[in-house]
Computed example of a mutant assay.
Amino acid sequence: MPAKRQTPTIRLRRLSGELRRLRDVSSLTREDVEARTGISNVTLYRIESARVRPQRRTVMGLLDLYGVVDPQRADILALLRQADEQSWLRPYHAELPDEYTAYISFESEARGLRNYESLFIPGLLQTEEYARAVIKGMRPTASNSEVDRWVQARMERQGVINRENPLDLWAIIDEAALRRTVGGGKVMRDQLHQLVQLAELPNVTFQVVPFRAGSHPGMKGSFALMDFPDPADPALVYIESLGGDLFLEAEADVQRHAQSFDHLRAMALSPEASASLAMSVATEIN
């Protein structure tokens, strides 16, 4: 069984970006670096894309090549020491997919999250029973223990909206997510009531794109857009799909999704009207 690859963290991502920037400033290609240091092109690519945590001697060799001195050198080595810190990680999380554990890591350190979902209630706002029903439906071959791990991880994630410095969550859903009865009538009613309650938190904004809005940018699929407290950490887009999960950090990709979210926000019902619609749907469920 292949080894589980390094799960990216904010610090590992920042380290990789800084090493990539330093190489660019030095006007060196990866082939140039390989010729001068012996660090292979493939290894350098994996380091610069945050796929692996580099060894200290490798980073030292790169810093020597790029002519980096203190205090910048000390800052980069500090990033290296912190690169695999994952205080959120639980033992069973190691059995979850790489992309999901990476997402948990980024979400736990994000300042703000703009999330659009077309078919279900966003994970940070789900009840445990709704989450269980969603996961069972989406992963019909999963064992009960696997489902339990996914549910527990999802419930733990929700701590970000209630912590001392809570995540700013702006959640937009298609009306279809309100009207799809997941887990049966009681589960869905409880979910809609919790959704409205959580929407009253000062750091949570909830909107619904109504059916009458017609076609909209969210019809392309769900996505999450995260931004971080430190300006050195660029925004990040996460897209989950059957074809594989994607993390996008190119400025053009981030801007495209930010613009789509702005259009969705403009087309959606106000937060007050969205909450009213959710409560209305709850009363209609048998």
Score class of each variant (00 low, 15 high):
152 Q>N: 14
87 S>P: 13
85 E>M: 04
285 I>L: 09
111 R>D: 11
49 S>I: 00
171 A>Y: 02
32 D>M: 10
130 Y>M: 08
36 R>Y: 04
202 P>E: 07
134 V>D: 00
219 M>K: 13
51 R>Y: 04
117 E>Q: 14
226 M>P: 00
131 A>K: 08
13 R>G: 01
147 V>I: 15
244 G>A: 07
163 R>C: 05
203 N>F: 13
264 L>N: 01
223 F>H: 05
141 T>E: 13
61 G>T: 06
168 D>V: 05
7 T>S: 03
225 L>A: 10
251 E>H: 13
263 H>W: 07
250 A>D: 14
239 I>E: 10
62 L>W: 08
164 E>Y: 10
16 S>G: 15
186 K>Y: 08
144 N>T: 11
140 P>F: 11
210 P>I: 04
217 P>K: 11
123 G>Q: 00
80 L>M: 04
206 F>V: 12
208 V>K: 01
32 D>K: 09
185 G>P: 07
19 L>P: 03
18 E>I: 15
224 A>E: 12
146 E>M: 08
41 N>I: 08
242 L>Y: 12
25 V>F: 03
11 R>E: 15
129 E>F: 04
48 E>M: 12
256 R>S: 13
158 Q>F: 09
276 S>W: 00
282 A>K: 07
112 G>D: 06
237 V>M: 05
6 Q>R: 12
68 V>T: 14
128 E>R: 10
126 Q>C: 09
82 Q>N: 09
282 A>C: 04
143 S>L: 12
187 V>N: 10
268 A>D: 03
205 T>L: 12
196 V>K: 07
258 A>L: 06
187 V>A: 11
206 F>A: 02
269 L>P: 03
108 S>H: 13
272 E>V: 01
236 L>M: 12
75 D>M: 06
207 Q>A: 04
237 V>G: 03
213 A>R: 02
235 A>H: 02
207 Q>G: 07
75 D>L: 12
33 V>E: 06
74 A>Q: 14
70 D>P: 06
155 M>F: 05
6 Q>H: 07
